[in-house]
Computed example of a mutant assay.
Amino acid sequence: MLVSITGGTGYVGSHTVDAVLRAGHRVRLLVRDESTVERALRPLGVDVGAVEVVRGDVLDRAGVEGLVRGADAVVHAAAVFSFDSRNHRGMARTAVEGTELVLDAARRAGVGRTVYVSTFGALLPSRGRALGVDSPVGRPRETYLAAKAAAESVAREHQAAGAPVTISYPPALLGPHDPKLGDQVTRVRNALRGLMPIWPTGGLPVGDVRDTAALHARLLGGGLVGDRHFGPGEYLSMRRFVGVLREVTGRALPAVHLPARAMLPLGALVGVVQRVWPWHIPAEYGAIYTCAHAAWVGEGVAGGRAGRPVGETFADTVRWLHREGLLSDRAAGIAAGLRVV
């Protein structure tokens, strides 16, 4: 089966490419810069020469049509994921117009199955209820989440019209090999570098990028019942999040936890300052907002299969950051096989 993938050089996308190839399928990617393919896929052990490449992006109709032409399945994973206010420009257009263009092109090309990669955050605020496949599209008051909620509505409209679209909802993802060092992995790095002494209360579902990628490969086979699936993960309070980091590194990591809702004005102020401040400030409104409004995922809806233990995911993330020179020996602690003194 030929599987065409958008966002294949990103975090979720590159791991999905690996999982799809391991499942025995062929892969075609839509990329703006062909040099990014090797940087993203080679560390995963992917034979880059076996991957077909179409040049373009999700807002380029000709490129998208070339991507889906002759494909048996499509995975639409392209998105601008960031809570950094400097990255907000164009975020909604990429999410909404890109999803409209890819899903419409796949339908017109007669693609047998399209997997749209959403996020649990598209269903927020949860209002305290467990998230499930029947949860309504959210109305989040945050730029990235609002963009994903709007794109979610597009995908559901295609489903309602009878198009063969399946939606996946990844949790907040960690794990090794993040080609672009996105927000979640950066958050772990900042915490271990001592840049995050203050944390919000609340929490969020957390999972392993490799488990979500494996779910995408399974969805292409059509063996799972239903057209909406949550990626495997576990709901973690922010206290537990920091606690797992302590466990895998053996470090004390002093932290103060403040009510998430009370921290929202601070996050909004940081977002304004961040637009003119050249260095990243690790106190993002979007992250605080998510912690304040997220809820657990209901039992039996997380991809039909349990994910790997959260401690394993955290440890693998820290070890990868250390191997890449993005964490010092001291910061990585026992996760890097080093004694903590």
Score class of each variant (00 low, 15 high):
D316K: 08
G303K: 06
Y285E: 01
E100A: 09
F230K: 07
L219P: 05
P179I: 12
P254I: 01
L245W: 07
H25R: 14
V64T: 09
A172W: 14
V31Q: 06
L59V: 12
R139W: 09
G8M: 09
V188F: 11
G300P: 00
H15V: 10
T317V: 01
V276Y: 06
R308F: 00
G128F: 00
G8P: 06
T114N: 02
H76T: 11
H322P: 02
P278A: 05
V188M: 12
T201I: 03
G98W: 06
P176E: 08
A130V: 11
L264V: 08
V341L: 14
A50V: 03
Q274D: 04
F120M: 13
V64N: 07
T186G: 11
R89Y: 12
R239V: 06
A155T: 13
V53A: 04
G90Y: 10
R189V: 13
Y289F: 14
A151N: 08
R32V: 10
Y11T: 09
V270D: 08
V276M: 05
A71W: 15
V340L: 10
T166L: 04
V225C: 03
A294S: 10
A122N: 01
P43S: 05
A294W: 03
G110D: 00
V48Y: 00
A287P: 02
R108C: 04
D211R: 02
V58T: 10
R22Y: 15
D329S: 09
K180A: 15
V137I: 08
E100V: 07
G243R: 01
R86L: 14
G223D: 14
D183A: 15
G110W: 02
L124N: 00
D183P: 12
G250S: 07
A294H: 00
R305T: 05
G223Y: 05
P265E: 12
A336K: 10
G203K: 12
A147N: 05
V340E: 14
A294Q: 01
P278V: 08
H293T: 01
L30A: 06
G286K: 09
L195C: 09
E38Y: 03
S126Q: 08
V206M: 11
G121E: 14
G66P: 09
E97S: 13
L181T: 08
I281E: 03
G112P: 00
T94Q: 13
A151L: 07
A130N: 00
R189M: 14
E52A: 15
P205R: 05
H158N: 03
G45E: 04
G333C: 10
E247V: 09
F81P: 02
A172F: 14
M196Y: 07
L174D: 02
A332K: 03
G333Y: 04
A191S: 15
V54R: 13
M238I: 08
A302F: 06
L44Y: 03
G175L: 03
D316P: 04
V341W: 15
M263W: 11
V225G: 08
E100F: 10
A95P: 07
A336D: 10
T212Q: 04
H280A: 10
V185G: 07
D134H: 14
G226L: 07
A23C: 10
V48K: 00
W279R: 13
G70F: 05
A191Q: 15
Y11M: 14
P232D: 01
D178I: 13
G138S: 05
R305I: 00
D60C: 12
A255K: 10
V276T: 12
I167M: 06
G8E: 08
A260Q: 01
V46S: 02
G128W: 03
